[in-house]
Design a protein around this nucleic acid. Sequence first.
RNA 1: CGGGGCGUAGCGCAGACUGGUAGCGCGUUUGGUUCGGGACCAAAAGGUCGAGGGUUCAAAUCCCUCCGCCCCGACCA
Length: 565
Amino acid sequence: MRLSNTLIPTLRDAPQDAEIESHKLMMRAGLIRKLGAGLYTFLPMGLRALRNVERIIREEMARAGAIEVLMPSLQPREIWETTGRYETLKKSMFRIRDRQDRDMVLGPTHEEVITELVSHELNSYRQLPRTFYQIQTKFRDEIRPRFGLMRAREFIMKDAYSFDLDWDCLDRSYQAMYAAYQRIFERCGLRVKIVEADTGAMGGNASHEFMVLAEAGEDGIVECESCAYAANVERGERALTPAVEEPAGAGLVDVATPNARTIEEVSKFLKLPARRLIKTLIYLADGKPVAALLAGDRDLNEIKLRKALGCTELVLADAAQVESATGAPVGFAGPIGLTIPVIADAGLQGRASLAAGANKADTHLVHVSVTRDVGAARFHDLVNAKTGDACPRCAAGKLREMRGIEVGHVFKLGTKYSEAFHAAYLDANKEKKTMIMGCYGIGVTRTLQAIIEQSHDENGIIWPAGVAPFLAAVLPLSPNETCMNTALKLEEELIRAGIDALVDDRDERPGVKFKDADLLGCPIRIVVSDRSLAEGKVELRKRSEKTSQLVPLEEAVSRVETLFS
RNA sequence: CGGGGCGUAGCGCAGACUGGUAGCGCGUUUGGUUCGGGACCAAAAGGUCGAGGGUUCAAAUCCCUCCGCCCCGACCA
């Protein structure tokens, strides 16, 4: 491909709305352009790389025995009502009406569609197990689209669904997908961390996320320094050092703490470290107030709290609700004397000599003993694990926090969807059984951006060979016909060898071509110029390396081939 | 949805407080010189200043309404 015959609009400066490196580079290298919030056009370079990711996925899905289908994005409301998700996902779905006033949705995912299909088409144990997948555009009305393709409103996803005979069978399907995912991300040049994940609203009982470690990642991860344990913070646990009962000590004392509301202010005022304070948060669980207790140096995990309470809706109480529940303004809530239910983080069990709000304006209590003063509370794991906590799996390990971009997610779903759609089969004994499902997603467009986030330098993108839009960039440097013709001939030979090459045939100075070549990030750069041509040679350089080598012109193609064999 | 910020040429920005009819760098076009890490000289094109309304002799600038975009938070398969 000649650069002058395509559209690769590189930018010297990144648009001001691009925040993270990968987003800036996708804009600067002319991969994508924005149409609106969370809506992007793929330009030729972006599309070529995207197709490469898709190709890798298709190859690995085929190897794992999954079957490709393509389902509609536009879906009738009814199938969403079948599973009750028309209500639960209402806010995140784009909903539209057709000319007959029928309610439709733009599919945010396809469990309903595939299960509806399978319920009609598969009905014998002889036809199972089966795994279907598609690569399809999804639509989600994200509260806040951000970071380019990382969280878009329209994006491409590979989603796969397994239909199994029983739970053992599901385990095998799950394993096959898990292994396929490892291969896919490896071939994409990504280093991924596989973590235990929360199953969220999808239901099901086991789940792993494939995370690309990156500072810009939206997900928090905790991992053990010495064993294999790693989990999304949504679910990550910590080992509790056996609850040593601290002596209760002196009785409760009121202390005036004027205007000290936050943990930081109270800590400073009482000269106590945050971990000796009890943070009391008032929540409304399905509309009813409840107090959640945790140590001052901890962050509450709402997913854990919701599970512990067994409620569906959980919102932090507003100032008025806090005041009516505790009798004190926000900042002075404490567990003692509360009439609402109290639930406490297990890490507080046995602790003493703590401080807590007194449920009275400008007042805190000191010498609080959890056992003596808050004994009636229920204890559950309610907080996020953090760096330095003990590993829940191995004795010695300490946890550390990291951030990641979720590029893949595998779930054991169970029967939530197969039951709703009566996806069942007859077994060898003519008994009717419900299929067991798994589902497996890869954010394809997000993966593309994650590759750039993980593989770039100050000059631009460094494409891994498997996904590069072009494997080689050919730069005719000298402004004469010999040089240009040599470059074009080289391109032909590369194509004949099955290597996609991009020839920078623009009438530009060397510096411009070098800068753009670095920005575009093709794995191999071939410089053709009078200087080396005089000796019958061209210059080869890997994008990932600083040094180049001179090779005879006629050997150039074979040298490129060996670099990637 | 709450908080904050932004919207002026393709991109990055100044001008706004203190109203007087729009500017800089890069990019683009033409001509010339140049040619190994974003060249130089000369000439030029390109803007309903996000939209609508108001105040004023006069609005990019002041006021009101709306729209779009970004960040933090809440939220979320």
